[in-house]
Design a protein around this nucleic acid. Structure first.
Length: 197
DNA sequence: CCTCCGATGTGCT
DNA sequence: GCACATCGGAGGC
């Protein structure tokens, strides 16, 4: 969402440092991934179906899906292709930490370090209370329970690292994952066991 | 209708 | 590092 028609990878990169509020918890984004459309085999929008239709729509909306019993959240952006979205992989909790701890604790036996409250896309959604009910939320509406505040933090001191996306089988070497270098909330990289080019 | 399988997380070795 | 829980989407029959 930095520029209206910038490539999706640049839009993803530009979201690092932005604030995201979800049901009373605020995070600063530290790790994101870019997903495109028909030219990106790893994207749900690779095939146009009812589920992926939202990514062909207007930017600034929330795309939520479930995988392995967890929720994952994306911001729909306007890329150069017909569909684009940015997966929110991790963030640093900067507000509402008590709520986030409660939500994370509810599904675990062992305690969660504060730096890991929103580490990984499933955990991020859990911490922010994001479920399928939040699908299609307008993130630019100040009244939305989930919203994006575009103001960047520490624009200069932020070293950004690019690398391959986590856990994807197809297009596994595309360098579309971006994260803040050395930040403790960033999830570990895992390559898909059967990853192809 | 049924099968396959993933943009994951957790706990254990 | 490894196993497995877990469930809806997508596609095959």
């Amino acid at each position: 969402m930095t520029r209206a028609t910038a490539p999706v990878a640049e839009q993803a990169r530009g979201l690092l440092g932005a604030r995201l509020v979800g049901h009373g918890v605020t995070i600063v984004l530290t790790e994101v991934e870019a997903y495109a459309g028909p030219d990106d085999p790893a994207s749900h929008a690779y095939t146009r179906t009812p589920r992926s239709e939202i990514m062909y729509g207007p930017p600034g909306r929330l795309y939520v899906y479930r995988i392995h019993g967890h929720h994952c959240a994306n911001i729909v952006v306007r890329g150069t292709g017909p569909a684009a979205a940015v997966l929110l992989r991790a963030g640093e909790v900067v507000g509402g930490a008590e709520i986030a701890r409660e939500r994370r604790h509810a599904t675990r036996s062992t305690p969660v370090p504060d730096a890991h409250l929103a580490r990984g896309p499933g955990n991020l959604c859990r911490a922010l209370g994001i479920t399928m009910d939040d699908l299609d939320t307008d993130l630019t509406d100040p009244a939305s329970p989930v919203r994006l505040e575009t103001a960047s933090r520490r624009p200069g001191r932020m070293r950004v690292v690019a690398g391959p996306r986590v856990g994807v089988r197809l297009a596994a070497d595309r360098q579309w994952r971006f994260h803040i270098d050395g930040h403790p909330s960033v999830s570990p990289y895992r390559r898909h066991p059967r990853a192809g080019g």
